[in-house]
């Protein structure tokens, strides 16, 4: 589709995050279309790595993830656009052209999801780690052991997680976190 556009030329492709970073350094493209789910490195890490060396890199995330968690992390990592793979062809072409001239471009569904939660107290790194362990079936005791903290401390974190996510219990919290893209499973 892109190669049919007179003003667009595909200069390179990569199938994992590490290759994407290497390819960017070599090719210095005007625009990067980045998937968030790749083989040996996440798209978020690749965005951070590219932007660390090229502050002016213009990256558009093209993903199936509509949750606010990943979208906000991608934008705060330096992505200028965030589109869903279900987007229309026209939307993708518009996004490429508008980001190329320095604007931001978001799918409104994603923008709405971000707006709904962006002002809430975010989960801390520790809370995300605990919730990820819970999502893998670990009890509070096991999670505490793995993180080298007491079971009581884990319970305290869980209580905070429930409050922040508006969850009734740990299963509900894990479900919300997966839907919003706050944890990886």
């Amino acid at each position: 589709m892109l190669s049919t556009q007179a003003d667009m030329h595909i200069v390179g492709e990569a199938d994992n995050g590490v290759s994407a970073v290497e390819a960017y350094d070599k090719l210095l493209p005007d625009i990067v279309l980045m998937d968030l789910q790749m083989a040996d490195g996440s798209g978020l890490d690749a965005i951070k790595a590219i932007r660390a060396n090229h502050a002016d890199a213009r990256i558009i995330v093209l993903t199936t993830y509509s949750g606010d968690g990943r979208a906000l992390r991608a934008l705060r990592s330096g992505a200028m656009g965030y589109l869903l793979k279900a987007s229309l062809r026209k939307q993708l072409l518009d996004a490429i052209r508008s980001v190329h001239v320095g604007g931001k471009h978001l799918d409104a569904t994603v923008a709405t999801a971000i707006a709904l939660h962006v002002l809430e107290d975010p989960l801390t790194d520790r809370e995300i780690a605990i919730l990820s362990l819970a999502a893998s079936g670990n009890s509070n005791k096991l999670a505490g052991s793995m993180l080298d903290i007491t079971e009581e401390t884990v319970k305290g974190h869980m209580k905070s997680i429930f409050s922040k996510l508006g969850a009734r219990d740990r299963t509900h919290a894990v479900t919300i976190a997966i839907q919003r893209g706050l944890i990886e499973v």
């Binding site: 987007s87 939307q91 996004a95 508008s98 320095g102 604007g103 978001l106 569904t109 709405t112």
Partner: peptide, 9 residues
Amino acid sequence: ETLILSSPP
């Protein structure tokens, strides 16, 4: 600064 929102609800 510019922001485009495609397909608003």
